[in-house]
Each structure stands twice: as structure tokens, then as C-alpha cells.
């Protein structure tokens, strides 16, 4: 579990790509490097959340929620 949250923290840090700040080059001839980096970042974010489903999913919450007595949809 700890490793997963370290991975999330690392991803948060990697969002700040200061090394590409002034980079104007084009990846694949059309994608600006800063945009290519952050589009890849979006893919990485999705991959990290796939890991979350496998590694840190709170299974216990489902049962806890169902133990309640008040699914009235009303005034609680």
C-alpha cells in the first residue's frame, strides 16, 4: 500500500516538468514536447489508477456501507 502512495506522490511531483518549460520541439513532427509529456502523463495517471483497483481498493467499505439501516434517500 505504501509503495502505491509513493507512486502517486511521485506522479504528482512529475507534473511539474520544469525541464520542458522552454522546449519548443515537436514530437512525431506535430506534438509539442510539453503537450506530449502531459498527454503521456494522463495515460500514466490512468495506469496508476488501474493499479489502485488491484492494490489498494477498499473492499471493506462495501460491506460497511451495506450494514447501514437508512437507505431512505431522505433526510438521513
Amino acid at each position: 500500500m505504501r509503495a502505491f502512495w509513493i507512486l502517486v506522490a511521485a506522479l504528482a511531483v512529475l507534473h511539474h516538468d520544469a525541464w520542458l518549460w522552454g522546449d519548443r520541439s515537436l514530437v512525431f513532427g506535430f506534438l509539442p514536447s510539453g503537450l506530449a509529456y502531459h498527454a503521456t502523463y494522463s495515460l500514466a495517471a490512468a495506469a496508476v489508477w488501474v493499479l489502485a483497483l488491484r492494490c489498494v481498493w477498499p473492499d471493506e467499505l462495501e460491506e460497511w456501507a451495506s450494514e447501514g439501516d437508512a437507505d431512505s434517500g431522505g433526510n438521513g
Binding site: L11, H15, Y41, S42, A45, W49, A65, S66, G68, A70
Partner: peptide, 26 residues
């Protein structure tokens, strides 16, 4: 890209918890 990370993080950390609390207590 910041929203891609943060929104899902919030859904995971807060959304599911609130869903469970909301369901349990109505």
C-alpha cells in the same frame, strides 16, 4: 493533466468514502 490526476484521486479518497457513508446513513 492536473485534473486527470487530482479528480481521480479525489474520487478514490473522498468519493467512495462519502458514497459509503451516504448509503449507510441515508
Amino acid at each position: 493533466s492536473s485534473s486527470g490526476l487530482v479528480h481521480s484521486l479525489v474520487f478514490f479518497l473522498v468519493g467512495i468514502k462519502l458514497w459509503a457513508i451516504g448509503k449507510r446513513h441515508g
